Simulated scan of single mutants.
Amino acid sequence: MSRSGLIHFVFVCATVMLFTSCNRPAKNNNQQKKTQQYTPNVPEGWQALFDANTLENWKITSFGTEGPVKVSGGSIIINYGDGCSGITWTDTFPKVNYEIQLEARKMVGNDFFCGMTFPVNDDFCSLIVGGWGGPVVGLSSVDGQDASDNETQVLKYFEKEVWYNIHLRVTETSIQAWIDDEKLVDLNYTDHELSIRPEVALSKPFGICTWMTTAELRNIAMRKLESVQ
């Protein structure tokens, strides 16, 4: 091969290599690294209801007013809508003698950031945390009265972007609820009528929603109890 031919050959090879390099898709760092997996932090003996990575066994509740719901950073993010937004459990759930524990925090908005609807034998009730403008904790409904008006009402200040541990216990005679180990609800319901507001009917049998408020949930867990009075 002549000197000029060799130079031409080298030039062509270099041009092809440069073109190939420039047009090769850049490696995606997300593809190189495995997707980060989170592990729920639940007490021993409890069943995790949220795997910290997906909405497995949950569905986004079709309230018609809901904002978007997604999983990120080990939490469920319920974005505010024009009314209720939330998730509903789709697997089996006990009717009585059980406990629920979760962590929740309010990010945006000024109403309840955890409206937990749950079964009580053949009836249903809701634990409201941060309702009626932000401070009301209680059960809706008892004898037809909302949490703001019945005997379970408690006022508590909730800061935004602060995680609160919410613990609910339902036995054959009582409903109890704690927030950060402070017992705020203790109702013997045997002589009361329990019900839920129509807005949260789609949360049955067990669901968690917000009202025009963005919230995050994590470490949702349940355990069954022996027969407890």
Rank of each mutant, 00 (worst) to 15 (best):
R218L: 07
A221G: 10
E159T: 02
S203N: 07
A26L: 12
T152S: 10
F11P: 10
A147V: 05
A26G: 08
S75A: 08
V142W: 06
K160E: 00
N188T: 08
M1E: 15
R3N: 04
D82E: 15
E199T: 00
G73E: 01
T152W: 00
S72E: 15
S140C: 03
V154W: 04
K33E: 15
L217E: 04
S195N: 11
E44Y: 09
V200I: 14
T54I: 11
P205W: 03
L55M: 03
T88Y: 08
Y98T: 08
V42G: 15
W58R: 05
C22N: 15
E56S: 15
P25E: 06
Q37S: 08
K204I: 00
V96Q: 03
D146Y: 08
V12P: 13
K70N: 14
P135Y: 00
P40Q: 05
K95I: 03
T171C: 10
L184A: 04
T210R: 05
T39I: 15
H8S: 15
Q153K: 15
S75D: 14
K224T: 13
T117G: 12
D181H: 13
L127N: 06
K183N: 08
P205H: 10
A177C: 13
Y80N: 11
M222H: 04
N97W: 07
F158M: 03
T54S: 14
A221R: 01
